[in-house]
Amino acid sequence: MIKIDVERKAFGENEILRDIRFEVADGETVAILGASGIGKSTLLRLIAGIDEAFEGEIVRPSNIAMVFQEPVLLPWRSALQNLTLVHPTLGEQAARGALERIGIADKAGLFPGQLSLGQQRRLALARAFVGRPALLVMDEPYVSLDPQTAEEMLELTEALIAETRPTVILVTHSEAEAKRLARRTIRLAGRPATIVDGVGPPGAKREDMT
């Protein structure tokens, strides 16, 4: 069970988040919705443990992977090395299998700058999933993609979630993405942002929520 209790998050005098409280069951996928700039990415960084300067408490597993808005790959390393260096226990054969699973096995020796944006995002997904994280946090991973590539990425994400069964917290501005991937949605609004809709018991289906 992942427990989020953010009493307050501010940058200086600029208060971003207040009274954000919810829980996520093991293996559940929850989407966080809200307008651009509302504080969704800030909340995700708190949940992932990247930013610990807040008032409150977050209980989460130690095995966490994050998919950022930008691929954030190692530009001086090949696609294959972006997997094996981040996951030292991953053998080359397994890493090549991961690249084959995401459809870029023939790009193993290329550097990120030689890949298309869609291919870079596929590699970022593989890097996250190959470690079989207990918690996967995803920050608008399909932004700036054309519709066909975004659809391919959504299909790939669905398949990888089904295969590895992590708990997933997804930030998105897209209702369609949330409906496609998440069992439950939580909406942020206001200044500072707080939860205005969607909190239900962990594991609840949408029809169970009020």
Rank of each mutant, 00 (worst) to 15 (best):
T210Q: 07
E158M: 02
T29R: 02
V196I: 15
L80N: 13
R183H: 11
P112M: 02
H173F: 00
V168K: 00
E23K: 08
L74Q: 11
I4S: 11
R180Y: 00
A79S: 15
M153N: 09
G49E: 01
G131Q: 12
S62C: 00
K40Y: 12
V86T: 15
L80M: 09
E155I: 01
E177N: 04
L99I: 11
E152F: 03
S174M: 08
D146N: 05
V137E: 02
L74P: 14
G203F: 14
G203H: 12
R18Q: 11
E140A: 04
M153H: 11
D19L: 09
G12F: 10
F22Y: 14
S144E: 02
M138K: 11
R206S: 07
A126V: 01
S174W: 01
T172M: 11
G56S: 08
Q114G: 08
A98Y: 01
T42M: 11
E23S: 15
L17W: 03
L85T: 14
M153C: 05
E177A: 05
N63W: 08
I195W: 04
F129G: 02
A193N: 11
I186T: 08
A31F: 03
K3T: 12
P192W: 03
P61R: 03
I58C: 12
H173W: 01
P61Y: 10
I38K: 06
V67Q: 03
S62T: 02
L181A: 01
D146I: 03
